[in-house]
Design a protein around this nucleic acid. Structure first.
Ligand code: FES
Ligand code: FES
Lengths: 144, 144
DNA sequence: ATTAAATAGGATAAATTTGTCCGAAATAAG
DNA sequence: CTTATTTCGGACAAATTTATCCTATTTAAT
């Protein structure tokens, strides 16, 4: 469904947001430990998310990653996925035809578009705050 | 969503089924041309599907691939996807945790399982006959 | 029997994704 | 100013997926 990079990116972002709820910055090291991901690879993903303004990064001692409270409402799961995996999953043909076209549909088009749309809407409706809160109150977890 | 191998496998199977509606066997060459896929790679996928009994193959002149009418009702899109990509998409965690567990859910679990289930049911309810028929009457297409 | 046509299958290569290493740049603190 | 700590970024490596090549095997037809 999502690439490994995207899975790591989502988990990292949720963790950053959760810690930011308590005004705490987190370092790459903490993040990788918390979400059980390879550190250097996770760094690349976070760099990309930072460049796209989805998380804020700070260098130096006491540095790390954070997300301000306002962004937690603005940024949706959709934005993370779109930034890392692109929009193919949201608009692409389920069978890989060049473009999804309802007028010249592939055999699965009619059955696929509904699911694709459900997924898209779910991701567009899910805020980082929501996900961070669930994690914060111990309702959800990032490791297993 | 699906791997390239799976996309090719689905398209090839639908094409084979459509031709079988007219009692016509199709060769690898025809299939690859029709679905616009690399021939040798498609061969591997079809070999695997044949070993799993999802299509029938015959060697020698007049040989090729086919699917009998009864199988078109029995075999679901689900079976093709499961044979090629495995069941991770049907039961796996959206964030890649080892197991999806509703009692210890990841942050997206509650929002993800519904979509995962919709996809699974759609694939389990879609017969090869249905897809082959749509293609046969020109309602759908395999190339673009 | 011989030939030609087709799938089967092993070995290999290319491309992409995933993961690692190391030095540069920034910055907080003594 | 120096040092320690942290992210940034480029180069590289490993693993996986995608794709190719070539030979073997099966089989229909002459
Ligand atoms: S054309 Fe394939 S999903 Fe729309
Ligand atoms: S635990 Fe992640 S989807 Fe169920």
């Amino acid at each position: 469904m999502f690439s490994k990079a995207c899975e790591y990116g989502i988990k990292a972002t949720i963790f950053i947001a959760q810690k930011s709820l308590h005004k705490t910055r987190v370092s790459l090291k903490e993040i990788a430990a918390e979400i059980n991901s390879p550190e250097a690879f996770t760094a690349k993903i976070l760099q990309s998310l930072a460049r796209n303004g989805l998380v804020d990064s700070h260098k130096g001692p006491t540095g790390g990653f954070e997300m301000n409270r306002a962004k937690m409402d603005t940024i949706k799961l959709y934005d993370i996925v779109n930034a890392i995996d692109g929009d193919n999953i949201f608009v692409g043909c389920g069978l890989g035809l060049k473009h999804c076209d309802a007028n010249k549909p592939c055999p699965v088009h009619d059955k696929f578009v509904g699911i694709r749309e459900n997924l898209t809407q779910m991701l567009k409706n899910t805020t980082m705050y929501e996900l961070a809160s669930g994690l914060d109150i111990g309702l959800t977890q990032l490791k297993r």
